[in-house]
Design a protein around this nucleic acid. Structure first.
Lengths: 189, 189
DNA sequence: TAACACATGTAACAAGTTACATGATTAA
DNA sequence: TTAATCATGTAACTTGTTACATGTGTTA
């Protein structure tokens, strides 16, 4: 049984004790989202497919007029989750980073513009770092089982790494831009 | 004029002096692919759309029976490229990392399986690091203008960072697995 | 003469996002 | 009573991948 990655996220979340599609979505949004996102448009149809395939089962929550459905793993679902977790198939790994893409073509714009873009890139990573720190604080408070410390730590270190890399390159570009300016001014005299 | 990212890649590559769709694709494959991939199924239709929009123009290469089309930027295309490069719009940044996703759900499998998965994850990053080193060597030889040293360096450092992180966690998990095993054996006696 | 690189293109499919519709519950 | 949160779901759209069809040029 080849599991789609969305299916894997769902089974994993159900295994952690989450119950509704809504719960899964909001947990994803402050945990796996940083390295694997999922939208309602994926989650609800996938839950239906998984039930069809017998990997999960659901029941309406009694006395809940909102029509909540509580899902749980079936034995087949648990097996499918473990199979995916143990599979030796190549791991999907994909990065889409518009900041780096721009950097690649930096020769087409002026040094001052380059510096601006680099600062923008750094500030966005700083925002994400801030979000992760917020997650860290929230987790420390209510001892959530749902975010292994190692993975969160990895996220924090990754953001810090990129931020540091940006800062280093900014210093270099600033120096170069200044040198270029000085040269221009000397020439202008 | 809102440029799709694929369009931006194409304009950037044409600005670097590449001419055909094929050339763009193969250059992407050993350069931007590491942080922004593109397939033929995106490149050829996008080239046609860009020509329609007047951002690029093409001519058939004379005496080439393969039907090669040489593209170049129009002034509008150059402007669109610079506009995108200077835009203050939030930068798209997306990571999809199945290894980290598995790690997130590691409690569902045995310690030895966890170690196996972590090693698999590290080995894939080592493969990518190897590819980047190969790119580095090729570049050093033929002084290609098309891969800014900073961006390549970033790729190398990023891979090294993840590999190191994996190695550290592997050591921890191995220690824990051993301790668990010893405990089991002691109990078994 | 075979394999590989050059070259263009498309059709079918898979994956993912966004925006909307709908309504209940809870806390300020 | 109003805003936020809980809750399910879908339709339209965008993006991206894979596999195929087709053919030329070059090199071992």
């Amino acid at each position: 049984m080849e599991l789609s990655r969305t299916a894997a996220v769902i089974l994993g979340m159900l295994n952690l004790g989450l119950r509704t599609g809504y719960e899964i979505k909001s947990t994803v949004d402050h945990s796996t989202r940083f390295f694997w996102a999922a939208s309602y448009g994926q989650i609800y149809p996938e839950l239906a497919r998984l039930e069809e395939a017998g990997l999960v089962r659901s029941e309406r929550v009694e006395g809940d007029a909102r029509g909540s459905k509580a899902y749980e793993l079936t034995p087949d679902g648990e097996r499918a989750l473990r199979d995916w977790l143990s599979s030796e198939e190549p791991l999907h790994h994909e990065l889409r980073h518009e900041g780096l893409l721009k950097l690649f073509f930096f020769n087409a714009i002026e040094p001052e513009q380059r510096l601006r873009q680099l600062r923008l890139m750094r500030s966005e990573h700083e925002r994400v770092l801030g979000e992760l720190r917020q997650v860290e604080r929230t987790l420390a408070e209510k001892d959530d089982p749902g975010f292994p410390a190692e993975v969160l730590q990895m996220g924090l270190e990754y953001q810090a790494f990129v931020i540091d890399w940006c800062a280093r390159l900014e210093r270099r570009l600033a120096k170069e831009a200044k040198a270029a300016e000085t040269a221009t001014r000397a020439k202008g005299r």
